[in-house]
Design a binder for these strands. Structure first.
Length: 688
DNA sequence: TTATAGAGCGCCCTCTGCTGGTATAGT
DNA sequence: AACTATACCAGCAGAGGGCGCTCTATAA
């Protein structure tokens, strides 16, 4: 089984390592990467029986293992045991490692390579990018690493931490990596120490390693490690992820993750930390230069004070004796409980000196002050100028560079960069609309949408956005952006005027130009001074000179110059269902067939009173027994009537003849209609 | 033992901007 | 009446700010 080790999405250099069934694999897509780009944490200094045999075969090929043997010899400690997986690791002392020269350090746990991946497709699941020889070598290394990884896995598990991070600088700060190795190795070594002690080797561990005596629980753990761990270890996975360091330095952030989160079945003793002391003479000499180090049985934590380690190890305990009397939630310390209870009671002892805010913890106050008052932003993005108050915000921001979207929707392909966006997205599936307008009860999926709704629909003094290039005023900024994009954006392609050869590169200028053509009365009568804007109007007008009347009534053969006139004639003279409109005078009740007549009458009848408004006219005077029109048409006609009354006429618009009759009083209409019936003419008729 | 600093995770909010449907005016 | 253009509008996602709460490490 294998696990992908890098999901960072970075296309550049990576460090990848994967444990395969208890082994370590070096991974890299381009194995020809120059050596200086390699940063190595070496394979475990393990010589299990099988590995020893293999090592004999490969002794001359595997430099790292060979030198392990040499080291063992030089240390004067050769441990040969059936329980061998751990025997040589006891040669490595923590203080020595901290101070060790690089060549001494090349004997540890993992091998990491900084490599350049050719593409995102290079994944560890697929080793096809290795040529057969490389793949064979990889398998060899897996076997070599074998049981040592068990220890690593055990340690990772016991640490109960999913992530460890350290920073290594490839060029300058190798010791950062070494220290990381040390941390891992210390953990490994503790395990090894117990195993060696238990295996009754020819060497007294008390003497040779200086390790303090193991507790019973640890002994049991070691037995477990020897006898039954390999199977378990095969299910463990270990991920190393690399990311570029800050500010473009040649620096890599390594993230170690335990990919197997299965519950720990066996736990080491909580009670006592381990002390690592030099074992060999050489080591003892070096130990004089280094303080003794105690470290946690469960994680990488170390300290020079055993009390600190013992106190630290309490965090691995699940014991939480301090229980909240309000919600029964338990806490490890009184302080934690007190902070928690304060959240119930609303007690906020940490008050901001610059505003009225107060907080339960000092940390909250500090953070608040950074946000609101000092504006200190310690977390800076190396790829842009973004800086944040909190590390988590920077982490979230980094995803906007990497494109990483860890939060996958279970119902569609959408993936989010943070949990909130995924939660918000899920409303599109559930149909949930948690935000309700308090005025009209309309519901919305997002608060911002509701806010905009209330602003636009229910608010006064709504802000408007004036287009900088034209008179258009738009309610929303985003729509103004669309307006600018559609109308005022320069386009390379030429747009031609419909009426002339002019060309333009933005729609607005083109439209404005074309409007200038529309105002031209370019059609001139050859018989008189009449001019008009539309050709069809001129066609009708010309008939007044030629006498042409092309529209013939089929019922009575009467001829007309316009289709409209024929239609009115047919309706009035030949439609038996035709019922004329009756307009009553609001004062005296006298009926008129045309509104204009009634209007003229009502002016006399109600001398001194104002002309009724169109609405009043519609409501109070119009009685329409049986209109031949469809209701919708009637509404449309009424609307046009309103337009006529209010003078809202469209230049050049053709108007139904009955409205013209109404406006003009219907007198001598036939004669009037000999003229071209544009609205401006109608207005002229109305002013007669 | 306690207080404090700080990390980390989660939640919610606002602001922003794009998209597509719709109503309406114009052609 | 059909078609087109465009403002209006709701839906939706990206990005970031701010705070609540818990926890660990460390100093006092």
């Amino acid at each position: 089984m294998q696990h992908e080790a890098d999901s960072s999405g970075l296309g550049g250099r990576r460090v990848q390592a994967t444990l395969l069934g208890g082994g370590v694999i070096m991974a890299g897509a381009e194995l020809s990467v120059p050596p200086e780009q390699f940063t190595q944490i070496k394979e475990p200094e393990l010589i299990p029986d099988r590995a020893l045999e293999e090592e004999k075969e490969e002794e001359n090929d595997n430099d790292g293992v060979r030198r392990v043997k040499e080291q063992s010899g030089s240390a004067g400690l050769e441990v040969e045991s059936a329980q061998g997986p751990f025997q040589t690791t006891i040669l490595e002392e923590v203080p020595e490692l901290v101070l060790a020269a690089p060549e001494e350090i090349e004997r540890h746990l993992l091998t990491l390579q900084t490599v350049h991946f050719p593409s995102e497709e290079a994944e560890l699941q697929d080793l096809s990018w290795l040529d057969p020889q490389q793949e064979d070598e990889m398998q060899v290394r897996v076997r070599q690493a074998g049981s040592g990884v068990q220890s690593l896995v055990w340690l990772e598990e016991a640490a109960q931490q999913s992530l460890h991070q350290c920073v290594l600088n490839v060029q300058e700060e190798v010791y950062s990596l070494q220290q990381m190795e040390v941390m891992q190795f210390q953990l490994l070594e503790e395990n090894v120490t117990g195993a060696v002690e238990d295996c009754k080797s020819a060497v007294s561990l008390e003497e040779s390693t200086g390790s303090i005596k193991l507790q019973k629980g640890q002994e049991e753990e070691q037995l477990l490690t020897e006898g039954g761990f390999s199977e378990k270890a095969e299910e463990q996975f270990f991920l190393v992820e690399a990311r570029p360091g800050d500010e473009g330095r040649d620096e890599i952030v390594l993230t170690f993750s335990n990919l197997n989160m299965e519950e720990q079945k066996e736990k080491p003793e909580l009670s006592q930390a381990h002390l690592e002391k030099p074992s060999t003479t050489k080591n003892r000499n070096k130990a004089k230069e280094v303080k003794q180090t105690f470290h946690c049985n469960f994680c990488k934590f170390t300290s020079s004070r055993i009390s600190s380690v013992n106190r630290h190890m309490k965090i691995h305990s699940t014991e939480k004796p301090h229980v909240c009397h309000l919600c029964l939630k338990a806490f490890r310390t009184v302080t934690l409980l007190r902070n928690h209870v304060n959240t119930h009671t609303g007690t906020r002892p940490h008050k901001c000196g610059d505003c009225d805010m107060a907080f339960v913890t000092s940390g909250e106050l500090v953070r608040h002050r950074r946000y609101k008052h000092t504006h200190e932003k310690p977390f800076k993005c190396s790829m842009c100028k973004y800086a944040s108050v909190e590390a988590s915000k920077l982490k979230r921001h980094i995803r906007s560079h990497t494109g990483e979207r860890p939060f996958q929707c279970s119902l569609c392909s959408y993936a989010s960069k943070d949990t909130y966006k995924l939660k918000r997205h899920m409303r599109t599936h559930s149909g949930e609309k948690p935000y309700e307008c308090h005025i009209c009860r309309a519901r919305f999926t997002q608060s911002g949408t509701m806010k905009m709704h209330i602003l636009q629909k229910h608010s006064e003094n709504v802000p408007k956005y004036q287009c900088p290039h034209c008179a258009t005023v738009i309610a929303r900024k985003s729509d103004l952006r669309v307006h600018l994009r559609n109308l005022h954006t320069y386009k390379a392609a030429e747009m031609k005027c419909r009426y002339c050869p002019a060309v333009f590169h933005d729609r607005y200028t083109l439209i404005q130009h074309q409007k200038t053509h529309k105002n031209e009365k370019k059609f001139k009568c050859g018989y008189c001074s009449y001019v008009c804007k539309q050709e069809r109007h001129m066609t009708v007008h010309i008939r007044t000179h030629t006498g042409e009347k092309p529209f013939i009534c089929l019922a009575c053969t009467k001829c007309f110059r316009q289709q409209q006139l024929l239609n009115v004639h047919s309706k009035k003279q030949h439609n038996i269902n035709f019922v004329p409109n009756v307009y009553e005078c609001p004062k005296c009740g006298k009926g008129f067939s045309r509104w204009g007549n009634m209007h003229r009458h009502s002016k006399k009848c109600n001398s001194g009173q104002e002309t009724p408004t169109p609405v009043e006219k519609e409501r109070a005077t119009k009685r329409k027994p049986a209109s031949p029109r469809e209701p919708a048409k009637e509404d449309e006609a009424a609307a046009k009537e309103v337009s006529l009354v209010s003078g809202e006429l469209y230049p050049g618009e053709m108007v139904p003849i009955d409205f013209l009759e109404a406006k003009t009083g219907g007198e001598d209409l036939e004669q009037d209609l000999e003229q071209d019936l544009t609205c401006d003419m109608i207005l002229a008729l109305m002013n007669k």
